[in-house]
Design a protein around this nucleic acid. Structure first.
Lengths: 312, 312
DNA sequence: TCCAGATACTTGACTAAGTCAAATAATTGA
DNA sequence: TCAATTATTTGACTTAGTCAAGTATCTGGA
């Protein structure tokens, strides 16, 4: 049972292969422009102008990576043809805000339609499920490469369980603990059983799930299960490695505690293992006290299990 | 509990956004060439020559999307500079096979290294897990767009369960049945419980799992569970919608039957629901006989459950 | 308040990159 | 055998983009 990891060079080669591939891909898409009255760069400028307001020449040059001199001439040509007009910016006489004229919009429309149709034709060759996969993969690439420190506005949000979450959490927990601690497939199976039972016997009055989502991806979760009138159990806290450091783990535990208090439980309990250090820190900080430890052999390893309790 | 589906236009817009994004991205990567002695196109040609043998001018023009005239001059320049040499192809005097000279390789090396380093620097800004996600997403895009009917050599392969599979199967079954039949989250939970129990009590002598993998992705699975010395149960047959029509379902069932026979079971049994028509066809074709039906209310729907048996 | 930088463009003077059509030579298929 | 096709080259262009040096403004201290 091996976990595949790309080595650094494999990754680099894969990215370079993709760059070569997409260079060609964009080249193919560009061929469409050849017939039209506009070059690819002109079309990019028109696109930006059609979709954003109050742009200045500098904005355009920066966002499209164009030479300011080249852009200047390009805009002059557009202005002469009556496609764009510039409005003075009162605060700064050097800059002016550039916008498409109605004629500019009319010129852009067929261009836009052609590009739309071309992409539609491209997608049409794929099954709907593959189209979704393509879009998702593209968004992932864009997010990962484009996110030069551009953090999402909302770092994460919490929501209850949806269809598909159980499997996702089972898989991620299985993979993460296999990678980080060498646990075998029985841990993944345990998570599956716990979550299966949780959903099956779910009692919304006394129990709850919190899924942390970041840009549409599940990055953490925790579950609160009723043990008795007085005791609730916090289970399966996890945070994606890529989303650590955002305080998601702490927040999930706090939500749990808040819910348990609100429902009138007296004790919140949880079971963990001593090697899971960062989780333990969160529990300690939240006021949990270590109640007992016991050695056990599970998931293919010798472990030390711990029960922690919080009196509410 | 909603399942998000991209509409056609959303998909098209997302792909167009990605094209604009990656046009810019490639532009950024190109800036690196400006200092060097070679243009992006020249570098692409050198790259192809360095990595493939026996290329002709036509091959290059086709694969890189270049104008033959432009390429001809470009190669002439390379030849004059001693970077490439042409060898006559005996079968066809029009064509010649183009290869880098040692000097050509020396000229390409720093170029190649710079490109490598540039990508390495790009990746370095990402956590290792994000690097993997990026690479996977790029490969997905490339496969989906590049695979113009270029089917993989091996359509699929079967392997036993690995860490991560359980969660994946739980998720996919949950999502597929929610989408196709409107089943609620309790179906996903049932799958989780079944698979959790399967792994936990797994007896390799009498039981087995088959995972169908296509280009590294799980596209189907089936499980054989021991009920008694004489009776085995086939469980959780599924095939990804994107991988249907390859005979994977049939193959999985056949593997199950073969294994059950080899182990000396007398009866292979399975439970399914009447609405799962394509699965039923597979069972019928394999020789299963409908033993009994019963109405039940599960997964938020009124269903008709069916038990099928195969005498081995 | 002034003024030494910066910033937002513009212009001039180029060059590289690519296109298109026509020509040449060799090959293929009926 | 020869018309059509293919591989490559050449000539004659155009376009797209670069680079550096302007001009006109603005900004942040002394």
């Amino acid at each position: 049972m091996t976990i595949h990891h790309h080595s650094g060079n494999e990754r680099i080669d894969a990215v370079r292969a993709f760059n070569r591939f997409y260079t060609r891909q964009i080249g193919l898409l560009d061929e469409g422009w050849l017939k039209s009255a506009f070059s690819l760069t002109e079309a990019r400028v028109l696109y930006e102008l059609a979709h954003r307001d109050g742009l200045t020449a500098t904005d355009l040059a920066r966002d499209l990576g164009l030479d300011p001199g080249y852009l200047s001439r390009l805009l002059k040509k557009f202005e002469e043809r009556g496609l764009v007009e510039r409005a003075a910016i009162e605060a700064d006489a050097r800059r002016s805000s550039i916008a498409l004229t109605p004629a500019g919009r009319r010129a852009f429309a067929p261009l836009n339609r052609d590009s739309h149709d071309q992409v539609a034709a491209l997608l049409d060759r794929l099954a709907a499920s593959d189209q979704d996969r393509l879009v998702k993969a593209m968004q992932t690439v864009q997010r990962l490469l484009g996110g030069d420190g551009a953090e999402p506005k909302v770092p994460y949000l919490l929501r209850p369980l949806q269809v598909g979450d159980v499997g996702w959490i089972v898989r991620r927990q299985g993979l993460i603990y296999a990678q980080d601690y060498g646990w075998d497939e029985t841990y993944e199976a345990l998570v599956a059983e716990i979550l299966g039972a949780f959903v099956k016997s779910f009692d919304p009055k006394w129990e709850r799930s919190w899924i942390a989502e970041r840009e549409g991806e599940v990055v953490g979760s925790v579950f609160l299960v009723r043990k008795s009138d007085e005791v609730a159990k916090l289970r399966l806290l996890y945070v994606e490695p890529s989303a650590r450091g955002l305080g998601i783990g702490k927040r999930l535990v706090e939500e749990c505690i808040g819910f348990a208090r609100a429902k009138g439980y007296r004790t919140l309990t949880l079971w963990t293992n001593d090697i899971l250090v960062s989780a333990r820190r969160i529990y300690e900080a939240a006021g949990f006290k270590l109640a007992e430890e016991e050695r056990h052999h599970s998931f293919g390893k010798d472990l030390v299990g711990q029960n922690w309790n919080l009196e509410l």
